[in-house]
């Protein structure tokens, strides 16, 4: 059992928690994630580790409430326990001094991006960060990103904050302004990452992307997270979660993310019916 120590709501649909998981806190490196199961009847889902305090045995997670499990987890309060937290899983990010690094984060993809960019900054890179959200209220970690970035650009789809438009618009503008970029890191919805790579392609700027595949055990045992990278089938949980963006078959990834769409809907509707109060006032 893993105790929740602190909780913060960034938005009615975005939640942050500090959770006691001493072994994970000790070993976690940027790029790695955890799998959690909220209770005895719960499913296993991968979640991002944003930060850690190894001496206190704490990890920080941020998640968006999209399905039944994340909505239910959002009801947990400090003092409550998550049944299972396992990790850190996956390969850590390869961090080195590239020169100028551009980090591109979309939505809650900003959460896993943060420790990676922090590592990149600490390795001596010049860091330009582009963060995108649908609207101002959905933007997370702005202050922390600003603190580590040499330049921070914000975009919102509706123009409620920063530049109106998509992260790819801002990225294109940045490239056109003549900035020499040595390495890009993109984390966000698969469709965003796909178009970030498309934007970078003419300039041959290398890009790593971190994938949010479906997972079950997270240890390479089931293969549900498989994705085609170049001419090989890789498991996101053990070979990833980061791959060379140019080699990832994003369309396949997006397709595979819809396998349980129907069931996810059934589970969420059932949960809504049982707990209407949780959803009151949320669009």
């Amino acid at each position: 059992m893993y105790k929740i120590i602190e909780k913060r709501d960034w938005h009615p649909t975005i939640c942050e928690m500090w959770v006691e998981a001493p072994r994970v806190a000790r070993k976690h490196r940027p790029g790695q994630f955890v799998i959690i199961r909220i209770h005895e009847k719960g499913e296993r889902i991968p979640l991002t580790v944003v930060d850690k305090k190894p001496e206190e045995g704490l990890i920080r997670i941020i998640f968006q409430k999209v399905g039944k499990t994340t909505w239910e987890l959002g009801t947990f309060q400090p003092g409550d326990y998550i049944a299972d937290v396992v990790g850190p899983l996956g390969q850590p990010t390869h961090i080195e001094k590239f020169g100028t690094v551009v980090g591109i984060g979309g939505g809650v993809g900003i959460a896993p991006l943060y420790p990676i960019l922090k590592g990149m900054k600490e390795a001596g890179n010049k860091l330009i960060t582009i963060l995108g959200a649908r609207s101002k209220g959905l933007l997370i970690l702005e202050d922390e990103m600003r603190a580590i970035s040499d330049e921070l650009i914000i975009t919102t789809d509706d123009g409620s904050y920063g530049k109106k438009g998509l992260v790819t618009d801002a990225l294109k503008e940045l490239i056109d302004s003549g900035v020499k970029i040595d390495q890009a890191v993109a984390i966000g919805p698969a469709i965003m990452m796909k178009f970030v790579v498309k934007t970078l392609e003419p300039y041959k700027i290398p890009c790593i992307a971190s994938l949010n595949a479906m997972m079950l055990d997270g240890t390479g045992m089931c293969g549900v997270c498989r994705v085609t990278v170049g001419d090989q089938v890789k498991f996101v949980c053990v070979d990833g979660p980061e791959f060379d963006g140019y080699l990832i078959n994003f369309d396949e990834l997006m397709s595979r993310l819809t396998v349980y769409q129907e069931e996810e809907k059934i589970a969420l509707e059932k949960f809504k019916k049982e707990h209407p109060e949780i959803f009151a006032g949320v669009e």
């Binding site: 009847k41 719960g42 499913e43 296993r44 039944k68 499990t69 079950l216 055990d217 045992m221 089931c222 396998v259 349980y260 069931e263 996810e264 059934i266 589970a267 059932k270």
Partner: peptide, 19 residues
């Protein structure tokens, strides 16, 4: 694993789906 460990045959009482 979905079925045995996660009890997907009892979905949606259990959260893990199987198709």
């Amino acid at each position: 694993t979905r079925n045995n460990l996660m009890k997907a045959y009892l979905f949606p009482e259990y959260d893990t789906p199987i198709k």
